[in-house]
């Protein structure tokens, strides 16, 4: 069954603030093989103008795993998760994420397109800091394979 295009534009309530920890950043940087001292050593990050260690660019996946469930799990959208493939991913930064940040995410259904028997769902997540200033925006496009 095709996804309901009338849900385009739907936004979900902002998430509870996510406190970014220094050890979480170090753990994530190690997991993706990033050894630059700015991800591990607060003094090195400060020398580059940041208050504490900075997160690797793909770090926001730690937040979006939860926010993507807002739309994907929305019963009104009616998405069959067993038919879903992660198609595209994009992110755009205003500034790096820094340990000590309290991040809030707002998740929106940005686009629903049906083509060739498949549905394409684009979800957008806007991440802001405690002051409400933009940090990073992410777009995930899921492909929902048609039946048969």
């Amino acid at each position: 069954m095709a996804l309901d295009p009338s849900l385009v534009g739907r936004s979900y309530p902002p998430t509870e603030p996510y406190p970014v920890g220094r050890e979480k950043i170090r753990e994530f940087a190690t997991a993706v093989g990033l050894t630059d001292p700015e991800h591990h050593d607060p003094a090195a990050a400060r020398a580059r103008g940041y208050a504490d260690v900075i997160a690797p660019p793909t770090f926001p996946v730690v937040l979006t795993l939860a926010t993507d469930r807002l739309s994907v799990g929305d019963p009104e959208l009616g998405l069959d998760y067993s038919r879903v493939v992660h198609g595209d991913q994009r992110f755009a930064y205003t500034r790096p994420i820094v340990a000590g940040d309290e991040l809030v995410a707002v998740h929106t259904v940005e686009e629903i397109v049906s083509r060739g028997g498949h549905d394409f769902l684009t979800m957008r997540t806007d991440v802001t800091d405690a002051a409400g200033e933009p940090v990073v925006s992410l777009w995930s496009k899921l492909v929902v394979r048609g039946e048969g």
Binding site: V32, G87, D88, F91, A92, W139
Partner: peptide, 30 residues
């Protein structure tokens, strides 16, 4: 994980840039 593969591509980009905070935008299709 697709996002792990993307993290490796981003790692190449930061190495070429010579700066861990150089990435403004990144997009790819899996």
């Amino acid at each position: 994980h697709g996002m792990y593969t993307m993290a490796l591509a981003v790692r190449a980009v930061t190495a070429w840039a010579g700066a861990p905070d150089a990435v403004v935008e990144f997009s790819a299709r899996f």
